[in-house]
């Protein structure tokens, strides 16, 4: 019977709901302009690849600065008059102070042994007969003390102790590394911001094109009583789709690029005895990338759809 035949002409169920319709439309639009869509996705992926790489590398960078901080220490040389027992007690007392992560007491004998090991003039010291080296406490500050640059204050407070002769520290290496890392983060952040804005513009521009392709359908929908949200929803979905797929492409590019630079980066970091490792992106990092890129797509779509939909109802139903 022909009525049944007509009912069989219906497409899949999900394409007849309001959301399903919008999704089907947006997929259809991407599929119909395969080549253009592909180029757009590549452009988006390449543009977003650097911000994504920065995000993926951020934990490694963080580690780089904090790990190397962990090795940093101050050395408090004690007065000659301080006994090993007192020195050790002072070391233990300091360890519980705020801003200090750990301490280690080095007795005069230990100091001498170390000196002998590491120095060519060990024999000369032997010639002196008596041990000329003072006891020392090595102080490992909390990394936040190092970051906040309050090391001087800590050193000053250590100096107040009568047992201490002088406090010595050299933070040039930490400072330098931190400066480099924060420069990388700043420059990278700015670049990432610009590139993200570029991606936004690419999406907005692409959506403007999609809007013009959909104009006639939107007119018909308007004539049939569709709300502007109904008409705009496929465009929003296209934006979100571009964002999502762009984010996926960017992540893939970032992972490939990481694999390419992993070996040289490891070589470099082993030169510095660093534990710096480019690790694989975590699920939450990938989640952030996809969420942000979808949001970019939606914002891009919103920014380009505001005006055109306003003019719709003014269009004629009559022959133009």
């Amino acid at each position: 019977m022909s009525t049944e035949q007509a009912a069989n002409a219906a497409g899949p169920r999900w394409t007849y709901g309001k959301r399903g319709y919008a999704l089907a439309q947006s997929l259809r639009q991407l599929k119909r302009h395969k080549f253009a869509s592909l180029i757009t996705l590549l452009v988006l992926g390449i543009t977003l690849a650097l911000p994504v790489m920065l995000l993926f590398a951020s934990s490694a960078l963080q580690q780089l600065s904090s790990r190397s901080i962990e090795g940093e220490s101050l050395t408090a040389y004690l007065q000659d008059s301080v006994s090993d027992l007192d020195g050790a007690a002072l070391s233990i007392e300091w360890a519980s102070r705020e801003g200090i992560r750990d301490t280690r007491y080095i007795s005069r004998d230990e100091a001498l042994a170390l000196f002998r090991e590491n120095s060519d003039i060990g024999a000369a010291v032997d010639a002196l007969g008596a041990n000329p080296l003072p006891g020392a406490i090595i102080v490992f500050p909390d990394s936040n003390v190092l970051r906040a640059g309050t090391v001087e204050a800590l050193a000053a407070s250590l100096r107040q102790s009568e047992a201490v002769e002088r406090v010595q520290f050299d933070l040039r290496w930490v400072r330098r590394l931190q400066a480099v890392v924060s420069l990388i983060q700043l420059v990278g952040g700015l670049l990432a911001l610009f590139l993200t804005l570029t991606a936004l513009l690419v999406i907005a521009n692409t959506i403007r094109l999609e809007l013009s392709r959909r104009r006639s359908e939107m007119e018909v929908a308007s004539l049939l009583g569709a709300s502007s949200f109904f008409m705009n929803r496929p465009i929003l979905y296209i934006g979100a789709l571009y964002g999502l797929l762009g984010g996926v492409v960017a992540s893939i590019i970032a992972v490939i690029a990481f694999n390419a630079i992993r070996q040289p980066a490891d070589d470099l970091s082993s030169l510095y005895e660093s534990t710096f490792r480019l690790s694989h992106p975590t699920p939450s990092q990938i989640g952030i990338v996809l969420a942000v890129s979808i949001a970019l797509g939606i914002v891009g779509a919103l920014s380009s759809m505001y005006r055109p939909s306003q003019q719709l109802t003014q269009r004629g139903s009559n022959g133009k």
């Binding site: 002409a9 219906a10 497409g11 007849y16 309001k18 319709y21 018909v220 929908a221």
Partner: peptide, 27 residues
């Protein structure tokens, strides 16, 4: 409409179904 206002890229069925999709009818 005087000029029909059909969607050229959709089947006859889907053209006729369009107002029902807009109206939120069930499948």
């Amino acid at each position: 409409f005087q000029d029909n206002q059909l969607l050229p890229d959709r089947s006859v069925f889907d053209n006729v179904a369009f107002p029902l999709i807009i109206g939120g009818y069930r499948y």
